[in-house]
Design a protein around this nucleic acid. Structure first.
Lengths: 277, 277
DNA sequence: GTTCTACTCGAACACTGTTCGTTCGTCAAG
DNA sequence: CTTGACGAACGAACAGTGTTCGAGTAGAAC
């Protein structure tokens, strides 16, 4: 699979020859079917010949990558750190993974395969939808760093296709027009991922600070940071910033969940308003 | 300003001592006032003593950074490339900019200072709001790469504060409750930035491809890529993906503007629905 | 004219993703 | 059982990245 230099970027739509396209499609479909029937996400179509215990594989690499992201954050995961944990050098990874980009791709597929969309209940489709988006954020939160790989990625990863299919079923249960169904999956996925990315950047920034703070003995957590933001707002000159100043407390109110919930309400509410017209 | 090792991160809320906070506030406010009265965005409070033509300055560095992002994309901008264009080495930049992160911060402030929010017209506040968001995306598009710096950034940059203040005024003209005003600025800014980031990643991926294609004589533009995505959808097994397959065309319909406009309608429509309740 | 401060910048450090050429293990053919 | 052969593994290196150190220097202040 890594032998063809011009078309190995699975799902990245970088394909030069038309034959390569259909080839890619077949590969994708095969992987999808495998996924549907219980195959592990990220598994390649061709079965492993000799699954010796200490043999490298794309699966093991992805697994280690996800673990390291969870434990040490996205930025700490490098080809070398993965290789080291597998007891080898970075060059060895390139036999199973074409790229750092492809590795990120596989990581997303691995994690997002966990996303479950319920069977549609036409009575409560909107609540189901809200819960779905919240679930997805929860999965991102359970696997910090993964969200950073998602931006700019077309959801052609097998696990994601299943998800999108079910999500559309949910939307159609709410009589959402086709075009809105299509676009809404895009917008909502982007929104959830963005929130996850922002939270992750915060978390990572924090991680660095905590290391500093533990030296000085001081601890500066997220609430303290928000306090400082509020102080900035409160100290703005009232003549130029009457609103920001008076709303300093309001601006900094709300937990991450509340803020995200508001965004979800905006999207779902907007969708209902648009659909019912 | 770069002399205090623990508190130089302007606007990043990384401050260890309370004195540093007020110091930071004063600095921020001064910069804001300067901005309001016609100062250039990104300009430091302290006036340059000897503005010799070939002297380095944070302004010149930011200017070069923005230009290079526009011309060559975010990834191509490095401390070395900036220094080279200024006819010096990378070390010289660190006298005026603490960090690559701070440089990104300044770049955002520089560009987002261009964002204009009109005086509120209570009759058409929602249309004004929609236009505002579209304008912001337009500015991101005019300065490719800049959006990449935005994620995870608290809008304490002077230029952004002015914008947020005026945006809230616009929302209040629509009788939006305070809490919703506050959260909406967050959500909308995040959404616009995310769309810009995604577009930018696409653009950059394209740039790389174009270099490849020009060698082979083939040209693969964005439409062709979308065609391939549609082909993938169309080739999915109908028994497992009935919806995705039948909606293959719908899924890939719509220009970037249409898709973004849909997202904006979702947000604004959702806000109106929530506020009127 | 001297002092002093702030800026400049060459050289280096530690790190990144990636590639090259060689070696090694394992499996199928003879 | 031997012999190829071929993909996987790997040591070493390359071209980059952000960042730091410390010596040098130009300009303003006294």
């Amino acid at each position: 699979m890594a032998s063809e230099p011009h078309s190995f970027q699975v799902g990245r739509v970088k394909v030069t020859a038309p034959e390569a396209v259909t080839e890619k499609v077949a590969e994708s479909v095969a992987a999808v079917v495998g996924q549907v029937f219980g195959g592990r996400p990220g598994a390649q179509g061709r079965a492993r010949k000799a699954p010796s215990a200490d043999r490298l594989s794309a699966d093991r690499i992805v697994e280690v990558a996800v673990d390291q992201m969870r434990e040490r954050g996205y930025d700490a995961v490098t080809m070398r750190s993965i290789a080291k944990e597998l007891g080898t050098g970075p060059a060895s990874l390139y036999a199973h993974v074409a790229n750092r980009a492809e590795l990120d791709q596989l990581v997303v597929g691995w994690v997002c395969g966990q996303w479950q969309v319920p069977d549609p209940d036409p009575e409560h489709w909107d609540d189901q939808l809200r819960d779905c988006l919240k679930d997805m954020l929860a999965i991102y939160r359970a696997n910090p760093g993964v969200a950073r790989c998602t931006l700019g990625m077309i959801p052609l990863q097998p696990g994601l296709l299943v998800t999108v299919e079910r999500l559309i079923a949910l939307l159609k249960a709410g009589d959402v027009p086709d075009q809105y169904c299509a676009w809404f999956t895009d917008v909502s996925a982007l929104y959830v991922a963005s929130v996850a990315v922002e939270e992750d950047i915060w978390r990572e920034r924090h991680r660095g600070q905590d290391a500093d703070e533990s030296a000085t003995g001081e601890h500066l957590d997220e609430d303290a940071a928000i306090d400082q933001v509020r102080q900035v707002f409160e100290s703005l000159p009232a003549e130029h910033f009457p609103l920001l100043r008076s709303m300093a407390a309001t601006m900094t109110t709300g937990s991450a969940d509340e803020r995200f919930g508001f965004g979800v309400d905006l999207l779902v509410g907007g969708l209902k308003a648009l659909s019912e017209r």
